[in-house]
């Protein structure tokens, strides 16, 4: 709160502790940080401070993105990548959500699965690439398997932890209303934890994109990552950067979609007063 006596502090500070900022300031700040980023990049390339072969100018990268999509059928690579992320992520969710909820609801289930899940979580997924290639060959299977392994164990743990945090009073209320175990899991615990599950999915989807690039760089001839590896061979840094930017935009888009999904699925959470 500004002190009305001192006119030094009655002027609104741009950086005030824990004071909300206006929408205008938020937008200006968001654009500003990117202007600074591209400004430094542009400056570095224009002044010749960096080798343009290694760091192409930003406008060159933007032109390359356009060319990739319009002239060189990059959209099919992007489509393949998106498809891989969605298929692997759905498969991981289909396993992780029911298992995580059951582990969070029943300590007996946690006792069985948690030692297993915890151990797998600490094994770096990319270390499985050689063996996945030997098992599944070079088709879609090893890529999907890598994404699945990379995500599923974290998602199980997140879902389990959120499920454990469902307040006991809700469960006990249902018990004293005459609900049995199955009803409580389906009609109380699951709906209570669902908003947090969607948040966990949103977080893990970002991780899925990371593993996608690893999978495509190491063992693929299609997809965004494969395009970037091909570009490296011909020193096309502009194409590599174009790939990075496309992945970033895709990730952001998916994130926004999840945010929308959350609002749409849980209208009751938006109307808190």
């Amino acid at each position: 709160m500004p002190d009305p006596v001192s006119d030094k502090s009655s002027r609104r500070k741009i950086f005030a502790i824990r004071q909300p900022v206006s929408r205008f300031q938020i937008i200006v700040s968001a654009i500003g940080i990117w202007v600074v980023f591209f400004g430094i990049w542009l400056l570095a390339t224009e002044t010749g401070a960096v080798n343009q072969l290694l760091v192409p100018a930003p406008q060159k990268v933007l032109v390359t993105i356009y060319e990739l999509f319009v002239e060189r059928g990059f959209a099919s690579d992007v489509g393949i990548s998106i498809g891989r992320v969605i298929v692997a992520f759905l498969a991981a969710s289909l396993v992780a959500i029911p298992l995580g909820v059951v582990m969070g609801a029943f300590p007996a289930a946690e006792a069985i699965f948690n030692p297993f899940v915890s151990a797998w979580r600490y094994l770096p997924a990319p270390s499985f690439i050689p063996v996945l290639l030997m098992w599944f060959g070079t088709g879609e299977a090893p890529k999907l398997a890598l994404l699945f392994i990379g995500v599923v164990f974290f998602l199980i743990t997140l879902v389990m932890d959120h499920t454990k945090n469902v307040r006991n009073e809700l469960i006990e209320t249902a018990l004293t209303l005459g609900a049995g175990r199955g009803t409580i899991v389906r009609s109380v615990i699951l709906p209570a934890v669902l908003p947090n599950i969607v948040v966990a999915m949103r977080q893990m989807l970002a991780v899925t994109w990371t593993y996608l690039v690893i999978a495509e760089i190491v063992a693929s001839t299609t997809g965004i990552g494969a395009m970037m590896m091909r570009a490296r061979r011909f020193l096309h840094t502009d194409e590599i950067m174009a790939g990075i930017i496309v992945i970033g935009v895709l990730g952001l888009t998916f994130d926004l979609l999840f945010d929308r999904l959350h609002r749409w699925l849980f209208p009751y959470l938006q109307e808190k007063r």
């Binding site: 009073e169 209320t173 209303l177 005459g178 609900a179 049995g180 709906p191 209570a192």
Partner: peptide, 26 residues
Amino acid sequence: GMVFQAYTSFDWLSVRKNVEFGMKVN
């Protein structure tokens, strides 16, 4: 039936569905 100090409304259900919950279970 128990009423707790902490709020135990099922937030994902309307007031009417909350009140119907026990009857639906039974």
